[in-house]
Design a protein around this nucleic acid. Structure first.
Lengths: 305, 305
DNA sequence: ATCTGGTATCGAACTTTTCGATGGGTTGTG
DNA sequence: CACAACCCATCGAAAAGTTCGATACCAGAT
């Protein structure tokens, strides 16, 4: 009997074996399983080959299991249980889960989402672990290589086999020191172009969306200060005449001593949540994504301009 | 997807799943398993139905496992291991075994076999447990009801589904006190018939084989003393003129103060070992029976008449 | 002897698995 | 941008396996 032959047994056959073992009779098992007696007999015959043992031997007009069959029957029950447990997908129970979720995003998204996310996890899934990594414009690769479960960034397409969903609407605005004249006067395009700009370039190959809007208006700006992160930019701007162009959402994050004012152009974009088919149907990840979705929906409005 | 549908998965399909998971590719798995790519694809498709999950999702031109698939693959490996271990029948290792063997026999067989049996078990299978029960003419039923593994008795057929094998040759002789005249003079049939007999009747419905021999000679004896067991009969006989007719093998057991003398007739029979199909192919029981066979073969000859 | 209760086996119908060929989507290249 | 390479899904046909009813067969019970 070759190895491949063995593998032909299926769980159906094991269930039949278990039934015959329990009933101590092929006919009874057949009736109980609502199958013909000859089918059961044939199945047992196959299993005899598989286990190289008669499994059941005739004794008068009944059959009795062999010693080997005792073992096999126990094993069959174990296998069936394991299998049944495997087939039924485990429901996700936040309260009990000890899963780890890996979220990839950047400074802004962390700033607006992380605090409420951690708070909700604490409340609903206290044993869940959260890892936040930097997206750095590399979200697609991170998803592809399974370095993270979810990316949240302005990017809306994370490549083939991925899903994405808009979760926050954003609009560009300008941030200036609380003592800037622009706090009181609307800044026109000319003043904007001639202002001293601070520029945040979180990753080398990221071109902010508002540049496209400026292109369309036929203007461009060159920054006087360029920084690699949005972090603590508020402290840099305060007391200077520097102008930061960024999503008005930062008003939720930055100190009140810098003020969010209307930009002299209109430019909107969206923050997207992206994931892959690998986590798409996982109850745990479905729950996690809906948590993020909910947090995004309930985000406070940015401070009025 | 009904429950019965689930049961159709076989270990072959699980092996394919495991291979695809390991290779991260349907084509590679197909090549490795020496099957066509379409077969593998079809199998995965079936499993998708079983586990209600895509299991593998396309990502560019490769496939990546879903989270569920991670779990399923682990489960599949477990199942396969369990199954493989189950299919390969465990060799019997006397030195490690903690099995229990149940031997059914009566006073005589215990007397000649038990001591050497226990000794060998001690030596070769120290953790094996032995239970000796009384056969009491009930061996067939005991085998049938799985109350014992082996019966050793003069009976040669233990019913349908049973096996039996001659292991010791026996011959009737007479036992008399060491001071009996028969120790020196050969006892003829007449003297035998007229002697005072002690009769052992271990079970109600047991008719000793030598009665048939006496029938054939046209004589019969009626015992003066009837006892239910052969145990310690030697102490009863000693110093009396009682004659016990029993297999000469008792000379190995009884005190030297009673003497085994030739019976005035010839009657042989055999001790048989009987077992059922249930233990017939069990390595452990094959070993146990061969042990008994060996002990029987190496039994000392009865004391010369 | 015959009947009863049970398993094994047979041949026919049916279902599932397998295969080669082909279609369609994605990536990398000229 | 078209083209080739790669890889999975799907199709139809062929092969293999399963199921069933009928029947043979065997051991006990009547």
């Amino acid at each position: 009997m070759s190895r491949e032959q063995h593998l032909k047994t299926d769980f159906h056959a094991l269930r039949i074996l278990a039934a015959v073992y329990e009933h101590g009779s092929i006919s009874d098992a057949a009736e109980h399983l609502d199958m013909s007696q000859s089918t059961i007999s044939y199945t047992i015959e196959r299993l005899r080959g598989v286990f190289a043992d008669p499994l059941f031997v005739k004794q008068g007009r009944r059959i009795r299991p062999t010693r080997r069959c005792d073992d096999v029957a126990v094993g069959a029950r174990e296998l069936l249980q394991l299998y049944e447990r495997m087939v039924v997908p485990a429901e996700f129970e936040p309260a009990l889960s000890t899963d780890t979720f890996v979220l990839s995003c950047n400074y802004y998204e962390r700033g607006i989402l992380l605090a409420p996310l951690v708070q909700r996890l604490r409340q609903f899934a206290p044993n869940v672990r959260l890892t936040a990594i930097s997206a750095d414009g590399d979200g697609s690769r991170q998803l592809e290589q399974d370095l993270c479960d979810v990316v949240i960034s302005p990017i809306s397409d994370y490549g083939s086999g991925s899903y994405s969903e808009r979760i926050v609407a954003e609009r560009y605005a300008c941030f200036v020191s609380h003592d800037s004249p622009w706090c009181h006067t609307r800044m026109d395009l000319d003043s904007y172009v001639n202002a001293r700009h601070i520029h945040v370039r979180p990753s080398i190959n990221w071109r902010p969306y508002f540049h496209t809007a400026l292109d369309r208006l036929g203007v461009s700006i060159s920054p006087q200060v360029e920084v690699c992160s949005f972090g603590d930019i508020d402290k840099v701007i305060e007391g200077t005449d520097l102008v930061l162009t960024a999503t008005e959402g930062f008003s939720r994050i930055y100190s009140k001593r810098i003020v969010c004012v209307r930009a002299p152009f209109d430019c909107s974009f969206s923050i997207h949540m992206g994931w892959t088919g690998r986590t798409h149907r996982s109850p745990a990840h479905i729950w996690f994504r809906s948590l993020l979705r909910e947090i995004a929906r309930e985000l406070p409005k940015p401070r009025p301009l």
